[in-house]
Amino acid sequence: MFFTSKMKLSDVLISNHSLVLTLQRFKIELGFGEKTVAEVCRLNSIDPQFFLLICNVYSDSHYLPTEEEIAHTDMSGLLPYLIASHNYYLCERIPHIEQHLNRIADACKPNHKGILLRFFGEYKNEVQNHFLYEEKTVFPYIVSLCDNRKSEGYSINQFEENHSNIEDKLEDLTNILIKYLPGDIMPKERISLLFDLFQLSSDLNTHALIEDKILIPYVESLENKTAAQ
């Protein structure tokens, strides 16, 4: 483990600034002074082990928790964490990016404006459907497993197979803004939008890692438990 529960939370955040994004998802408010990870987690009723698991995936893309680590961690916070991430992407980041893009598109020729907005509209739909599938199909299945109910005809393998890629189009948009949109169109706004895209793209990557390295192994262990009964 890179981070320990005895570290000051402020030190953890400063050592990896992208972890600031997780606070809102854990419903941790800023202003925690010199408190350690353990203290802040206790005050917010978060399992510190789970909090550290997320922090470690964020800090090292090669980090893979062991089966024991997953078995000994209270995972009740996982689905709320993932849903809060979805909400952040859909209700905050994507609308923010859309506003930027709208202003840039307004400065383009009408046919270019049309195609840019249509492209982003499609992307938004794709992301919405991706999250909707998880929240309406995958997460209820996990809840039923936790309640020791078997649901017939579904397994986490299907999720792995159908897990669509929502990062490609974001990279495409980044390339278009850097390389192909004429240089005189809103240069300042474009640079600011590029930063937003880089940040969203890297956070979505980590989000996918959390699903691959924590969610899927965890659900597989639940499935094995249910099957053994």
């Binding site: 046919n111 195609i115 492209f119 992307y123 189009k169 990279e171 495409d172 278009i176 192909y180």
Partner: peptide, 22 residues
Amino acid sequence: KTGIKSIAGLTVYAMLNNLIEE
């Protein structure tokens, strides 16, 4: 060469480069 993977993205590319009209 372009770094663009999706068909939708390639369509934007084609349009910005005046390879297609609509």
